[in-house]
Amino acid sequence: MQAPVMQLSELTKNLGSHRAVDDLTLTVPRGSMFGVVGPNGAGKTTTLSMATGLLRPDGGRVEILGHDVWRDPARAKSLIGVLPDGLRTFDRLSGRELLRHTGLLHGVDVIDVARRSDQLLDALGLDEAADKIVADYSAGMTKKIGLACALIHAPRVLVLDEPFGRQRVRARSERRCGGLRGAARLLGGDGAAVRTRHRARGARARVGGVAGRRAHRGRLRHARGASGRAQLEQTLPELLAKINT
């Protein structure tokens, strides 16, 4: 039996006297677009920070494709691409330079870095700004180059913490998009994308909502908030489907 893309087991984290994450067990299946949905303070960012090795849990374990994030961090982290909330980057580099720098840090071959950078810049609509310094990018462009950096090493798991806020990222050509299946192909066919969101929209997306110690898993209709609406954009998988590995 193949290991899931991400497995959180009895994960716990205290922030001072506050129990931010309480005995959380969650499985992200292969080939999925998985949403973690909940209001501010529900523990979404804390959970994903532990899942990606950025924050050590007080209890429990995290495995990425069978590799323990804390016992085998180099291997586990090599499989993850992360776009954190409030990203800060080397903004005195151009977009192309930043991608090259990030790719080389991940150990990607120089030729592959150049090829993949061209694909990502084109798919994200940053080709004309590729040689401008990131400090001159708009907020939306900065998010896009952050996404490109998260994808430059061809990860199997893509983790997005409130990736775009109100910024909407659109693919240039809808006819080239493959939706969720296209996103799965980008991440190695049986990889997965995990993202946080306050609300969720998009009936085909698979959602796991986290609120305190409870995790709900199911279709979006089961994870709607009190408003009865679901709000998770489909633009991200459409965009990812344009990028060839």
Rank of each mutant, 00 (worst) to 15 (best):
V62F: 00
K144P: 01
L98V: 02
D118L: 13
G86N: 09
R100V: 12
R71Q: 14
T89S: 10
R61I: 04
R61E: 09
Y137M: 15
G140P: 11
A130L: 01
D118G: 09
L79D: 00
D68N: 15
G53Y: 06
V108W: 10
V134D: 05
R56G: 07
R56S: 06
A76C: 04
V69L: 07
V110C: 05
G81W: 08
R100L: 07
V134A: 12
V82F: 13
T142G: 14
I133W: 12
D131K: 15
S78H: 06
I145W: 10
A129G: 01
R75T: 13
K143M: 01
E63S: 01
G95W: 11
L120N: 00
E97G: 11
E128T: 14
R96V: 05
A76H: 07
D91M: 06
V69G: 04
L121C: 14
K132G: 00
G66C: 09
F90Q: 06
R116S: 02
E128M: 11
S138M: 13
R61S: 10
V69W: 03
E97F: 11
D85M: 00
L87F: 04
T142S: 15
L121G: 14
R96K: 15
R92V: 06
I64G: 07
G140L: 10
I111T: 06
I145T: 10
L54Q: 15
D127A: 15
L54M: 13
R61C: 09
R115H: 10
E63L: 02
H106G: 02
G59R: 06
K77F: 05
T102V: 14
D118M: 06
P57G: 09
E128F: 00
F90W: 11
D131N: 15
G146Q: 15
R56H: 05
S117W: 04
I80Y: 02
G103P: 02
L126Y: 14
R116C: 03
P73L: 08
I64T: 09
L79Q: 03
K77I: 07
C149S: 15
K132V: 01
D58K: 02
E97W: 08
D68E: 08
A135V: 09
S94N: 03
C149G: 14
H101P: 00
A148M: 04
L105Q: 13
C149Y: 02
T52P: 01
V113A: 07
P73E: 07
I145A: 14
I133C: 09
H106T: 01
F90V: 08
A135S: 12
T52C: 08
R75P: 03
A135P: 00
D127P: 01
R96I: 03
I111S: 09
G66L: 07
L104W: 05
G146K: 14
L55H: 03
T102Q: 12
H101D: 03
A129Q: 05
G59P: 04
R56Q: 13
Y137Q: 15
G86Y: 04
D112V: 12
F90S: 07
P57N: 11
V108P: 05
G103A: 02
L55D: 00
D72W: 10
L87G: 01
T102G: 02
S117K: 03
R88S: 07
Q119V: 05
G86M: 01
A129S: 15
K77N: 06
L105M: 15
D85A: 03
S78D: 08
R75E: 10
V69A: 06
